[in-house]
Design a binder for these strands. Structure first.
Lengths: 205, 205
DNA sequence: CCCATAAGTTAGTGAGTACTTACTAATTAC
DNA sequence: GTAATTAGTAAGTACTCACTAACTTATGGG
């Protein structure tokens, strides 16, 4: 044995969070016990507590990781410097693609951990969704200014509809054991949704 | 003491289901332990098992009760013999009113019990939602026939949007600790959604 | 009035949970 | 090279969960 047999705390901590995120998606957030996590990492169960004093500290770290991943994903969608008419669609599509590859997010969103057990986590996710709503609302506002969407459209309400589309779709996906293509289905439904926002009654001057 | 101090099995069974439904909404489906249920009913914890051999039998009974309540609610919405143009709106509104007074339903929909633990329950709810989708789809189809909705509208997809509206709204309601008026918010969003379905591009002949 | 039956209790089991204590061994600093 | 630090472990605590066995008591029919 020439190699290392231990890892540094920093490495381990990151590794645990990464595996927790994966495991939460695979077996469900409530089955992600410290034992299951330790097994997946390859250390003993109490070893977890060397890095995270409380289990909720793991959830906090996972939430931060998810937040970072989402920000990254949204930023990538924005960086593409698309015509604003496509931004909304790309935003939703890339978000759905992300959910598909990171099923832990909808799983956590539907978990007892979030809805009953862990108030801090609930607030964190509520805030994350609020930020998403804000982004959507802004993009819709720009579409209205560009006269592609109806002038009388309330951007906040429209954003809630798009958000509900995503969440409702994710729920259906989960209830149907993830047996259809989230992105394809979402794309089709979004087309229909956006058509309803279009400036048909009041054609541009 | 002239009155009875014990109840018949049938009475007790119904009582337990009713209280389980209430409790699932109040404390969350995963905190509705047999102990909590027994306390609420006013008997000892093992007393529950005299009436339901397994806990999942309680969930099955609760699911049946919910199904019956929903059917009743939908039937009531249909009995009103409304112009078909209002049926859709009444359907959604009365459903939201029902969710508001029976918060156990969204709670169960977001529970681990349903998504991970209890396959039978998941299928039961998936089927229930499928029936709701069918109803919505049918109503939208009639609106298209009546030329109030756009001829090119896919009734199935439109129904998914309405369903997502309800589910997404319920999720937001739950995430925000039920701090807004579900029905009022839903009514406003539904108006916007339905406007998007209207026959604006192809005015009636 | 007695007794069979059914509703309910007391006391317990085994499995699983987060978390702790007391120790060991690998790594790093000096 | 040795001492301090730190990652990790084995064993165990205290708790909660669904569920069971064996006993007790209330009720209604003969």
């Amino acid at each position: 044995m020439t190699g290392r047999t231990r890892k540094t705390a920093q490495e381990r901590k990151g590794e645990i969070v990464e595996i927790a995120l994966k495991l939460a998606g695979e077996v469900g957030p409530d089955r992600m016990t410290t034992q299951a996590l330790a097994d997946a990492v390859g250390i003993s169960q109490p070893g977890i507590f060397r890095h995270f004093p409380k289990k909720e500290d793991i959830w906090a770290a996972v939430a931060l990781r998810i937040s970072a991943l989402l920000q990254e994903n949204w930023a990538a969608a924005h960086r593409q410097d698309l015509p604003s008419s496509d931004r909304l669609r790309v935003f939703v599509t890339s978000h759905l693609t992300f959910l598909k590859t990171t099923p832990a997010i909808p799983a956590i969103l539907f978990s007892r951990e979030l809805h009953a057990e862990n108030e801090a986590l609930r607030c964190f996710f509520a805030d994350m969704i609020k930020r998403a709503h804000r982004s959507l609302s802004d993009m819709i506002g720009e579409e209205i200014k560009a006269r592609r969407f109806c002038a009388g459209l309330d951007p906040d309400d429209a954003a809630y509809l798009v958000l509900a589309l995503i969440q409702g779709l994710a729920m259906r996906w989960s209830l149907n054991a993830r047996n259809f293509d989230l992105v394809k289905e979402g794309d089709r439904l979004l087309s229909l949704q956006l058509k309803g926002f279009e400036n048909s009654q009041l054609p541009p001057a």
